[in-house]
Design a protein around this nucleic acid. Structure first.
Lengths: 193, 193
DNA sequence: TGGAAGTTAGTTAGTATTCACTAACTTTGT
DNA sequence: ACAAAGTTAGTGAATACTAACTAACTTCCA
């Protein structure tokens, strides 16, 4: 279990990465933003790498939970995909730093242990989305002229770029509002006519 | 114009970022990999930030050229999109470090001048792709039940995630080979029935 | 044409600053 | 009273960058 301070540390670390990139995440910046001294950080995590690992584990848990909820309910595939988008948009609205870092795996390139963790998360999420799409094809809900693998890349790629764009280009509408429209387009694209 | 050494520096810098992330790009690593001493780097670029700016400018020129070639020829929109993908796959095969960093804007978060440059590149490429798609819709080539803005996010998002996946998950087929199949799926999705 | 002057691209040695992290001590809450 | 969570003061290593010097070319012109 994580203590309050541990949770605060990974949340603030996430904010720092979101604002200044991975180079902005230093123990000094982290402690200053929290309001304690540098050595105090080490009462809660043994090393900086351990903090990054905790961030990735938190991602991993979060996304796995989202996918599991969708896999184990009785909704149609279309509804599952819709929830997937909606939940990501809600999470991004609530905590912009989180989702914007989730989709930036290149940030965690410098430590082999982090690359391994990231690769596993990508692989697992990909497989879960593919299994949702495959069962949608089997139910005659989704188009079958395109493989579930390709549909997965299209759906997830669209979601990711949409979120990233919203970080770099500001829009008049809110993210969930504009996202809702995009989901309609995605549904129209994958549905069986 | 860039000297040979300047080109070498940005190429090696790109390799370092690709291998170890932005934190792997240090003047020491850079000079060691090139085979000169650290101060020699400063004969060719005034600062590390200038090297990053040069990388982004090179991206900017490259992608603008690709888009311009496509905009100003007489191909159909479908063919233009197909070329867009093919050229990216070819570039990635030839120099994996380049394309994998192009699509990782979060790497350049720490300097405001870099964020500004990145945002401009994203915005410009987005507009060019939208104009290709819009003219395809006007020619009755592409489906019109989905806005060119959404089609653009779908097409570019798919391309980007596909390239990123190929970096983290290894596949049996080659990138251009597997990419060709993906392009067929994308075409099937955006074409007017 | 040959030597002086300047340029280019490198070197060695060193700067101040920042980095992650530690030892030893103090405060705080139960 | 004791453990958890903080502090001050410091470590060595790494960071971007600079100063001063040099070898090897190029340019220029008497």
């Amino acid at each position: 279990m994580k203590t309050e301070r541990q949770i605060e540390i990974i949340e603030v670390a996430l904010e720092l990465i979101s604002e200044k990139g991975i180079q902005g995440l230093t123990i000094k910046n982290l402690s200053k933003k929290i309001g304690i001294t540098e050595p105090a950080i080490y009462r809660h995590y043994d090393s900086k790498t351990d903090i990054l690992i905790a961030i990735l584990d938190s991602f991993s848990k979060n996304t796995q939970q989202i996918f599991n909820n969708e896999l184990n309910n009785s909704d149609s595939a279309i509804e599952k995909i819709e929830h997937l988008f909606t939940k990501h948009f809600a999470a991004f609205s609530a905590k912009p730093s989180l989702v914007s870092v989730i989709f930036s795996e290149e940030i965690f390139r410098n430590e082999p242990v982090l690359i391994e963790k990231i690769s596993e998360v990508i692989r697992r999420n990909d497989n879960m989305l593919i299994s949702i799409l495959t069962s949608g094809q089997e139910n005659n809900e989704l188009r079958t002229d395109i493989s579930a693998q390709h549909l997965s890349t299209i759906v997830m790629g669209t979601l990711r770029l949409f979120v990233k764009k919203s970080r770099f280009l500001e829009s008049s509408k809110s993210l969930p509002e504009e996202g809702k429209l995009l989901v309609e387009s995605i549904k129209r694209i994958i549905i069986k006519e």
